[in-house]
Design a protein around this nucleic acid. Structure first.
Length: 277
DNA sequence: ATGGCAGCGTCACGCTGA
């Protein structure tokens, strides 16, 4: 079971290279962020014509998340609503389309586009912290469901200094400040960053700024993550950043991240019930 | 390297992202 996450920075601009990458890698599920398109004009058919199930939660110009799946998408949940009890704050935060979730092969996949925050003195930073607090409540509610959980997305936070090319300069600033790191860590609870199961070294990035020749200098950040519950973590076979996609012509500023999990239909509870004959 | 680059909406340039 391969699950991928990719901030594509506009699906309409990136659709051709996403389809080429899908053909090469053929993951079971691709979680997209920053689709930047309103639902009625999302290029649904480009995916459906290749046999994918698609679920979208988009908006005009900004944000937007989507699930592109080889398997059926069940119990789809849009925004924080659907997991939390009726809640004004979650409702308000839902104006920005940043959360989509579904059951895929009996795995609960949650796809996030965490706010960037802009700078530590910005109102957007306060919004980011508020959003992370809501995420904590969302994940606490999700945990009670006892579903195997895979949490992916663009977190816009480098949790540790080894996730940044220049920690001396950047730690403490936006995407690497203590409050956002602590709040994300708290929200994650017992979920584990699967990339770090396989790789301890610094120097592995998922995002390179378009500006200042960041790609050519390999000045990146690792801000696109995949977190797994214990049950899935012990079945994880690999977690790779597909860095080559950042070298495409007219690339996204993010590269895809892919986890491979030992997960067959026979092992999932509902399928066991189906196999009684 | 506190600039720069890319996409969007709208059609000249401001806003936003990270």
């Amino acid at each position: 079971m391969q699950i991928a996450t990719w901030n594509v920075n506009s699906i309409r601009t990136r659709i051709d290279q996403v389809l080429i990458w899908l053909k090469e890698v053929d993951p079971d599920l691709l979680c997209l962020q920053e689709t930047k398109v309103d639902d009625p004009i999302f290029p649904l058919e480009r995916f459906k014509s290749h046999g994918y199930h698609v679920s979208i939660h988009g908006q005009k110009s900004y944000n937007g998340v989507a699930l592109i799946s080889r398997h059926e998408l069940n119990d789809i949940r849009l925004g924080f609503i659907g997991e939390l009890p009726l809640d004004q704050e979650a409702n308000d935060l839902g104006e920005q389309k940043r959360v989509i979730s579904a059951l895929v092969d009996n795995i609960r996949v949650v796809n996030l586009y965490v706010p960037n925050g802009s700078s530590l003195v910005s109102e957007k930073y306060s919004y980011k912290l508020k959003w992370l607090q809501c995420l904590e409540r969302y994940l606490a509610a999700q945990a009670k469901r006892k579903e195997p959980l895979c949490l992916v997305g663009d977190f816009n936070i480098a949790l540790e200094d080894r996730d940044i090319h220049n920690p001396k300069k950047l730690t403490g600033g936006i995407m690497a400040s203590i409050p956002e790191r602590e709040m994300l860590q708290k929200a994650l609870g017992s979920l584990q960053d699967v990339f770090r199961v396989f790789e301890q070294e610094s120097g592995h990035w998922s995002w390179w700024d378009y500006r200042s020749g960041a790609w050519n200098r390999d000045s990146g950040w690792r801000i696109d993550h995949i977190y797994l519950c214990d049950e899935l973590l012990k079945r994880a076979k690999s977690c790779e950043i597909h860095k080559n996609q950042r070298g495409n012509i007219q690339p996204s500023d993010h590269a895809p991240v892919v986890v491979d999990i030992n997960w067959t239909e026979e092992e999932s509870p509902e399928e066991d019930e189906d196999n009684i004959f």
